[in-house]
Simulated scan of single mutants.
Amino acid sequence: MSYTLAVHGGAGTIRRTQMTTEQEAAHHDALRLALNAGTAVLSEGGTAVDAVARAVTVLENAPCFNAGRGAVFTHDGRHEMDASIMCGRTLEAGAVALVEHLKNPVLLARAVMEQSPYVFLSGPGAMAFARELGLPEASPDYFFTPLRHEQLQQARAAKKIQLDHSDKFGTVGAVALDLHGNLAAATSTGGLTNKQFGRIGDSAVIGAGNYANNRTCAVSCTGFGEYYLRGVVAYDVSCLMEYAGLSLQQAAERVILEKQLALGGDGGLIAVDAQGQVALPFNSEGMYRGWARAGAPPVTAIYEAE
């Protein structure tokens, strides 16, 4: 048995002409750091859950992605973050939504899975649990970035809700197969710029934006959350494998390139199956992504023709 890890940092309208050399390098560097962190866990016999939690923590710490430190602003200038994690061996899962001030929401999601009788916590209750556990928090200044603040001003002026930046969906995620043959997936997001009314997207919803099952695959999604919720996207990939006999690539492409397009949903997903095969389909112009296998150097990519 070998190991496999894949990560993503969002999908959307990502064009070379809109990216500076420095921006490209920053995204590649962050993806590589996440891959290195996750594969370090896997190569030493760590679990898939350990690996995806570690990889997503690294991505949450990178201000260039819409999760953790780089989370976008809500309409009233706050940061409301969502995250989830799932173990393919046990089908246990943990999720949190509308958490504030928390440096790494994925760690709280994992704590919900492993240290509580629940699956999904939200808002003040989730934060009370985080504080009971002593998980690291930060002041609003930690989450403030000039780019995110500018996006909020633009969205307010246009009186619209924005999907991250220039239609980039900056949600982050990781999927892994460990040396023991177990799968796991984790996803984290800052949501939508200028969002209101306690909106929750797919990233925190098990089966929509995140899913893992040793019988089939592990999936982490990034895209227009409302469509991914309606399509139950992550679970749909697993179902097409389990009940229709499709391969991972066939199932992932059916969901993203056909079913989501028919609904009107932009974005993509990353997935790994029980044999270590990887699928990274997206129907947008780009997706920040990377993958690594035992004995091979990590690969990162942004644009479609890579």
Rank of each mutant, 00 (worst) to 15 (best):
P124V: 14
T39K: 01
E285M: 09
E114L: 05
G295Q: 05
V233C: 11
T47G: 14
G45A: 08
V119T: 13
D50W: 04
E44I: 09
R131V: 09
R148H: 06
A279K: 14
C64D: 09
L261V: 03
T39V: 11
A218G: 15
A128R: 15
T74K: 02
G134Y: 00
N61P: 03
H149C: 08
Q153E: 08
S116K: 05
L248Y: 00
P124K: 15
L280R: 09
C64G: 05
D141Y: 07
N213D: 14
H27P: 02
C221A: 04
Q18H: 08
I161Q: 07
H79R: 14
C217F: 05
A212D: 01
A6L: 08
R110T: 08
L248C: 04
S122G: 14
R156C: 05
A158W: 03
T4K: 00
T222V: 03
L246H: 07
F197V: 07
T4L: 10
N283C: 01
A301H: 12
F65Y: 08
A185M: 08
F120N: 01
L269Q: 07
L5F: 05
Y303G: 03
S122H: 10
E226A: 06
R156P: 00
L257V: 12
A176M: 07
T39Y: 02
R293Q: 15
A244Y: 12
I256E: 05
I200E: 12
A130H: 04
G38T: 00
G276P: 04
